[in-house]
């Protein structure tokens, strides 16, 4: 069986997650993630031809709430949690790049 995940895959995923990994860490996590994926292969080996795919472990659907307003939080309390605020807003470092 081929390797379940390559070192490059791990580097790519780390990049997407904004994680800066050293070479040693890359080796380490490639090994660990491979073990997780190997375990998933055990599950793949099961015959699930008669099992319907599911997006959720519970057999539930259409759980909704009525469209009724509930009180929001106090703004001072909300902004009090933030490291930096200005004019009733969260102040964040200059944003590089664009929103998707």
């Amino acid at each position: 069986m081929s390797d379940p995940i390559s070192r490059d895959d791990v580097a790519h995923v780390a990049d997407l997650a904004r994680l800066r990994l050293t070479d040693d860490e890359l080796d380490h996590f490639t090994e660990q993630l491979a073990a997780v994926l190997e375990h998933a292969r055990d599950v793949e080996a099961l015959d699930v031809a008669d099992v319907a795919p599911t997006a959720h472990p519970f057999e539930l659907s259409n759980i909704t709430r009525p469209d009724e307003v509930r009180p929001s939080l106090d703004r001072d309390e909300v902004l009090g949690q933030a490291p930096s605020t200005e004019a009733g807003q969260f102040r964040v470092p200059p944003v590089l790049g664009e929103a998707p």
């Binding site: 200005e86 009733g88 807003q89 969260f90 102040r91 964040v92 470092p93 200059p94 944003v95 590089l96």
Partner: peptide, 12 residues
């Protein structure tokens, strides 16, 4: 301008 911004403010 975004690329020269000093900082950003966010309203949720």
């Amino acid at each position: 301008r975004i690329h020269e911004a000093g900082y950003s403010l966010v309203d949720y």
